[in-house]
Deep mutational scan, measured.
Amino acid sequence: CKVCGDVASGFHYGVHACEGCKGFFRRSIQQNIQYKKCLKNENCSIMRMNRNRCQQCRFKKCLSVGMSR
């Protein structure tokens, strides 16, 4: 997965992504979610083991690796 490094389940929203990141991105855009501000200057490292800790940084990384509708 380009977002968290887990095993990708396919090509989702323009990038190779796992089911977790695919679902997270889908919910984020469909529900237009505004995530809580990052407590670490929006510089969190997103990996499989910690991908749920900072939703703002995870969504930012989804966009930075090329995920789009």
Rank of each mutant, 00 (worst) to 15 (best):
Q56K: 09
K61W: 03
E19Y: 08
C54F: 00
F59S: 02
M49T: 14
K2G: 04
K60G: 07
G5S: 03
Q55V: 07
A8E: 02
C1R: 08
N52K: 04
S68T: 12
K61V: 01
A8L: 00
R69E: 13
N43F: 08
Q31G: 10
Q55E: 15
R26M: 15
I33E: 07
H16C: 07
R48F: 09
C38E: 01
F24P: 06
A17N: 07
E42F: 02
G14P: 01
N41L: 08
Q30C: 05
C18M: 06
D6V: 05
D6S: 03
R69F: 15
N50P: 07
I46M: 11
Q55S: 11
M49G: 13
F25W: 08
E42M: 12
C62K: 02
N52W: 03
V7A: 10
Y13A: 07
V15Q: 03
C57H: 00
V15I: 08
R69Y: 11
M47I: 07
H12D: 07
A8S: 09
G23D: 14
Q56A: 15
C38L: 00
Q55F: 04
C4N: 07
N32F: 07
Q56N: 14
M47L: 12
C62P: 01
D6P: 03
R53G: 14
M67R: 09
S64C: 07
V65L: 03
M67H: 00
S64F: 06
L63P: 02
I33Y: 10
D6L: 05
E19A: 05
A17R: 01
Q31W: 07
S64E: 15
C57P: 00
L39E: 15
M49Y: 14
K37H: 09
C38R: 01
H12Q: 05
C1M: 09
M47F: 06
K61Y: 05
R51E: 11
Y13C: 06
Y13F: 13
H16F: 11
Q31S: 10
C62S: 02
Q30S: 08
K37A: 13
C57N: 00
L39H: 10
F24S: 04
R27L: 10
N50V: 09
C4S: 01
K2S: 08
I29N: 12
D6M: 08
R53C: 15
L63M: 00
E19K: 12
E19P: 07
K2I: 08
N43K: 09
N52Y: 15
I33F: 08
H16I: 09
I29P: 02
F59Y: 09
G66M: 05
I33M: 08
I29F: 11
M47Q: 15
F59I: 08
M47H: 13
